[in-house]
Amino acid sequence: MVPVSVIIITKNEAEIISRTIAMARLITDDIVVIDNGSNDDTVEIAATNNCRIFKADWHGYGANKNKGIAHARYKWILSIDADEIIDKDLIHSLFRLDYSKENVVYDIRFKTYFGSKLIRFGSWGRDHHIRLFNRETVKWTELPVHETLVLPRSTVKKTLPGHIHHYSVRDEYECREKAIYYASLSAKKYYNSGKKSNYIKLYLAPAFNFIRNYFLYLGFLDGVEGWHIAKNSAKNTWLKYHYLENLECTDTKRHYVKHRLLLNWTE
Rank of each mutant, 00 (worst) to 15 (best):
K157W: 02
E147V: 03
W140D: 03
T148V: 05
G122L: 15
V150S: 01
P144A: 07
L132I: 09
T137Q: 13
F133R: 07
L132S: 07
S123F: 14
V138K: 06
G122C: 14
I130L: 07
K139E: 12
V156G: 06
W140K: 02
P144M: 08
G162D: 06
F121L: 09
I164C: 01
T159V: 12
W124I: 13
H128N: 09
P161S: 08
K139L: 09
H146Q: 10
D127A: 12
R126W: 09
H163M: 00
F121K: 11
S123N: 13
H163N: 09
V138A: 03
H129Y: 09
K139A: 13
E136L: 09
P152C: 02
P152D: 05
I164M: 03
T137D: 10
E136N: 13
I164S: 00
I164P: 01
L151R: 01
N134L: 05
T155V: 08
T159D: 11
L149T: 02
L149G: 01
R135H: 06
H165I: 02
L143V: 14
N134H: 12
S123H: 15
R153Q: 11
G162C: 07
G162Y: 05
G125H: 10
H163T: 03
F133N: 06
L160I: 11
L143C: 10
L132E: 07
K157A: 09
W140T: 02
V145A: 04
I130M: 02
H165G: 00
R153M: 09
R153Y: 09
I164D: 00
R135G: 00
G122H: 15
W140E: 07
H146K: 09
N134C: 11
T141G: 06
S154F: 09
L149Q: 01
N134F: 06
T137I: 13
G122M: 15
G125K: 11
P152Y: 04
P152E: 02
L160M: 10
P144D: 11
K158W: 11
H128D: 10
V150R: 01
T137M: 14
T148S: 04
K158I: 08
N134T: 10
H129F: 05
T159P: 03
R126V: 04
S123P: 15
K157N: 08
F121I: 10
E136W: 07
K139V: 11
K139C: 10
H163P: 00
I130H: 04
G122F: 15
W124T: 13
P152W: 03
W124F: 15
L149Y: 02
L149A: 01
T148P: 00
P152S: 07
E147D: 12
H163R: 08
R153S: 12
K158C: 10
K157C: 06
K158D: 10
G122I: 15
K157I: 13
G162I: 06
V150M: 00
H165S: 01
S123K: 14
V138I: 12
T137P: 00
S154E: 13
T148W: 02
N134Q: 05
E136A: 11
G162A: 06
S154N: 14
G122Q: 14
T148K: 01
R126P: 00
D127M: 10
R131T: 00
L149W: 04
T141K: 06
W124S: 11
T159W: 04
K139G: 07
F133S: 06
